[in-house]
C-alpha cells in the first residue's frame, strides 16, 4: 500500500470522527442598554432591589465590594456543569435618587434563553413591568429511583432464595449476585427477562414485585 493511500485513509477517519461531533456553533450573547433613573431612593435602596431582582432569576447574587452597589449573579447549566448565564445590576448614587444599569450575558446555544429576555425580566422585576417567563434551564436526567413502574432499575431479591439478587440497570442490563448477566425489557406490566433463556413475568402495580416463570422477586425501594 502506498503512503498516499495510507494518509488518505487517516484523513477520512479523522473527518468521520469530527463529523460525528455535532457541536453547535457557540457564542456569547450580551445585552446592555437597559438603564433606569430614580429621582428618589438611596444607593442602599437600589442595592436591595438589585439583589432581589437578580436572585429571582440567578442564584447567589453578590456585591462586588461591600457598599459599592454593583451586583452580580450567574446561573449554572447542569448539563455542562458550567455557568451559561450571568447578569450585573449596577447602582450609582445621584444627587437625587440613583441610576441603575442592567447588563446580561448568556452562552448560546447552551443557555435556553437569550441575554435580552433575561435582562428585561431582571429590569422589570426591579422597577416594574411585564415579566415574561424564561425557558427552564435544562437539568440532567435523574437516575430513576424508587419503585417506578416504567422500568426495573434497582436491586431485586429472590423471595425463594434471599442469597440470589439481581441488579438491573437503566440500559436494560441485569447482573445477578454471582455475576451472571442478562437483559430486561418492560412493556406495560409485562416483563421479559433474558436470563438463562427468555422468561415472561408480571410487574405488580406498585412496581415492587416481579413474578412468573418460577421467579418471585421483590425490589428494594
Amino acid at each position: 500500500m502506498n503512503v498516499k493511500r495510507g494518509l488518505w485513509l487517516i484523513a477520512v477517519a479523522i473527518f468521520l470522527g469530527l463529523l460525528s461531533h455535532t457541536a453547535a456553533i457557540a457564542s456569547v450573547d450580551l445585552s446592555a442598554g437597559i438603564r433606569y433613573v430614580s429621582d428618589t431612593g438611596s444607593l442602599s435602596d437600589c442595592s436591595a432591589k438589585a439583589r432581589a431582582a437578580l436572585e429571582t432569576y440567578l442564584p447567589g447574587a453578590s456585591e462586588s465590594s461591600p457598599g459599592s452597589g454593583e451586583w452580580f449573579a450567574s446561573g449554572q447549566n447542569l448539563l455542562t456543569g458550567a455557568p451559561s448565564s450571568a447578569a450585573t445590576v449596577r447602582c450609582y448614587p445621584l444627587a437625587k435618587g440613583y441610576m441603575v444599569t442592567f447588563v446580561c450575558a448568556v452562552q448560546l446555544p447552551t443557555n435556553p434563553y437569550g441575554a435580552y429576555p433575561l435582562c428585561l425580566d431582571i429590569a422589570h422585576k426591579f422597577y416594574g413591568g411585564a415579566i415574561t417567563p424564561l425557558a427552564a434551564m435544562p437539568t440532567a436526567t435523574p437516575m430513576p429511583s424508587g419503585c417506578a413502574t416504567t422500568n426495573l432499575v434497582g436491586t431485586w431479591v429472590s423471595d425463594n432464595d434471599p442469597k440470589l439478587s439481581f441488579t438491573m440497570e437503566l440500559n436494560g442490563d441485569l447482573t445477578d449476585s454471582e455475576g451472571v448477566s442478562g437483559n430486561w425489557i418492560i412493556d406495560g406490566s409485562t416483563v421479559t427477562l433474558t436470563y438463562y433463556g427468555n422468561h415472561t413475568l408480571k410487574l405488580s402495580p406498585d412496581g415492587k414485585r416481579l413474578s412468573g416463570a418460577g421467579y418471585n422477586l421483590t425490589r428494594k425501594c
Binding site: G6, L9, I10, A11, V12, A13, I14, F15, L16, G17, L18
Partner: peptide, 10 residues
C-alpha cells in the same frame, strides 16, 4: 490506519 485516525479524532 483507520483506527489511528479515529482515535486521533475522538
Amino acid at each position: 490506519l483507520l483506527a489511528v485516525g479515529l482515535i486521533a479524532a475522538f
